[in-house]
């Protein structure tokens, strides 16, 4: 049934640090690589080497610019994938039972054997986290690399989502957000982790750490530092002015 579980034992999810993300898109590439060859149908590309390439991705990096009322703007790279919401509207709208939220860890998944490709779940998601695969006709979304995190056939350090494993600037963190002692919960508490579009009441599990505010240069720092030269330079200054 596509009703949501009352509660989940764990809330596995990601914490994304908007302060340290450098917008390199490595997470996008590693996500595509892992997920096109593992869980479910591949992530197809259309016209990949042509004039209008497009295809299915589970994770995409936007870049925004925030402009304060005065001073410099701030560029923020913004990775976006499924937030594995506690109150996931994509799950309850599903007519076939393909979409579900797991009771044991809160991961939202699509059972592709049941999906009829109606696209209603993508309409219900405020975050654009679900994409219908054009070739395979089934809905694709982030699985939180469910085939890595419990996979005993790969080395222990690899048992985290592919995007987290690959991030070179350590901007992505994975853990159990229901446990206040977990690393991710501590990060959220320390850095004021936030929800995206909280007004829609989806209660996302994934949190975003806001970028730290930039230092404001003081006016004093911009003043010329050498108004009155001394010694040799004072003589030179005077001599040159007299020419």
């Amino acid at each position: 049934m596509t009703t949501l579980p009352q509660s989940t034992e764990k809330k596995l999810g990601l914490v994304i640090d908007l302060d340290t993300c450098v917008g390199c898109h490595a997470c996008v590439v590693s996500c595509k690589e892992w997920n096109t060859s593992n869980y479910g149908a591949p992530l197809s590309d259309i016209d990949a080497y042509g004039a209008e390439p497009h295809g299915t991705f589970l994770n995409r990096v936007h870049s925004f610019e925030a402009q304060p009322e005065s001073g410099c703007s701030q560029t923020v790279h913004f990775p976006k994938s499924c937030l594995h919401c506690e109150d996931a509207p994509c799950v309850t709208v599903c007519p076939t039972g393909a979409s579900y939220k797991r009771e044991e860890d809160g991961i939202v998944l699509v059972n592709e054997d049941d999906c009829m490709g109606c696209g209603l779940c993508a309409w219900a998601c405020p975050y654009g986290a679900r994409e219908l695969d054009e070739i395979f006709g089934v809905m694709k979304k982030c699985t939180l690399c469910v085939d890595r995190i419990y996979n005993e056939n790969i080395p222990e350090e690899d048992r985290i989502p592919s995007c987290v494993r690959t991030c070179p600037s350590n901007a992505r963190h994975f853990g159990d957000l229901s446990n206040p002692e977990s690393n991710v919960s501590k990060l959220v508490a320390a850095r004021g982790g936030m929800d995206l579009m909280p007004e829609l009441g989806t209660k996302p599990v994934n949190k975003y750490l806001p970028p730290r505010l930039k230092d404001q240069p003081s006016d004093a720092a911009l003043e010329p530092q050498h108004n009155d030269a001394k010694g040799l330079f004072a003589w030179l200054d005077k001599a040159l002015e007299n020419i």
């Binding site: 299915t56 995409r60 925030a66 402009q67 995206l196 975003y208 806001p210």
Partner: peptide, 27 residues
Amino acid sequence: TATGLGHIGKVRLLEPPHSGENYLLKE
């Protein structure tokens, strides 16, 4: 509200995540 960056100031898109179209934009 979508980006959570409102506390810094007015937000605009600097670079989209991809140069072409995708399912989300078409739909």
